[in-house]
């Protein structure tokens, strides 16, 4: 933590970054995001095992962007992958972000493409145990059981769109759910609207989701929605040998194709 403070102090003093996005002490023993702009505020930064939420989401917010690039972000492995994916999707340029990562008890600042990609490749996103359990559970279920499982889970959804707000890769200024002519996604939180929203969310994140789990953490009613995008990413990985978030120049998985893509299900 001391190292992080020193590094943050240094960055702000040299005016190398406009703002540092990091974790600070919140209420009830939880951490919350803090935005550090002055040298006095650097002491607010904390960095421990509680810091899991993906802070890259703030890089897309106009309120943060107005401070001007470069911006420093205190990053977990998932955050680094997110930033690489955002660069691949031309939402950020190399040099816009100073990525602060922890490596062998030291704090490193990654800026260059090679450093980011190397870190992203060497540090895969690790799922918490309860997520792995849930994935295994769903794998063992029959299709009817899965249907019941998702009906029960999705019945809780009241469409607050916290999953969308928390997702660093849901950055469209006009989301498909906000389009009302034609209305692709029904707005009400009844089975039709909920089903359409979650399928659309998963399809739009297929091959892009870096599996940070921010959506599940953000969900106020505790739906394990990350499972849907994890499944989508798994398929993309398996069928098209494509892993998001490790290559700054990667094309989008669903807007490219190979002539020999598998088509066992097509008659």
């Amino acid at each position: 933590m001391k190292q992080l403070h020193e590094r943050a102090h240094e960055l702000l003093e040299q005016k190398a970054v406009s703002v540092i996005i990091g974790y600070g002490e919140g209420t009830e023993g939880r951490v919350r995001p803090v935005f550090i702009r002055t040298l006095e505020a650097v002491r607010l930064l904390v960095w421990d095992d509680r810091c899991r939420v993906n802070l890259a989401v703030y890089l897309n917010k106009p309120e943060i962007r107005k401070f001007g690039f470069p911006i420093a972000v205190v990053s977990t492995p998932a955050t680094v992958r997110t930033i690489v994916q955002l660069i691949a999707e031309h939402q950020l340029s190399i040099g816009d972000v100073v990525v602060l990562v922890r490596e062998n008890d030291t704090v490193r600042a990654l800026i260059q493409k090679e450093d980011l990609e190397q870190y992203a490749r060497n540090n895969p996103v690790i799922f918490p145990p309860f997520v792995i359990e849930e994935i295994e559970l769903l794998k063992k279920m029959s299709i009817e059981e899965r249907f019941t499982y998702w009906q029960e889970e999705l019945a809780k959804c009241f469409k607050c769109y916290a999953c969308r707000a928390a997702c660093p890769l849901c950055y469209c200024e006009k989301c498909i759910t906000d389009v009302n002519q034609p209305q692709w996604v029904c707005v009400a939180p009844h089975p039709v609207g909920v089903f359409e929203w979650h399928i659309n969310r998963a399809m739009h994140l297929a091959g892009r989701c870096i599996e940070c789990g921010s959506c599940t953490i953000a969900c106020p009613v505790g739906i394990p929605i990350a499972l849907l995008t994890i499944e989508a990413t798994r398929v993309v990985k398996e069928e098209f040998a494509f892993t998001p978030g490790i290559d700054c120049n990667a094309p989008s998985a669903l807007s490219t194709f190979r002539v020999d893509d598998k088509e066992t299900f097509i008659r």
Partner: peptide, 26 residues
């Protein structure tokens, strides 16, 4: 070709959410 990639993902997602993929014939 683009459509085929989308179908592969879409079909798997429907199956994951519990909808019989045999109802959609490609």
């Amino acid at each position: 070709f683009h459509a085929r990639r989308r179908w592969i993902v879409f079909r798997t997602l429907l199956e994951y959410i519990g909808i019989d993929p045999r109802r959609i014939i490609f």
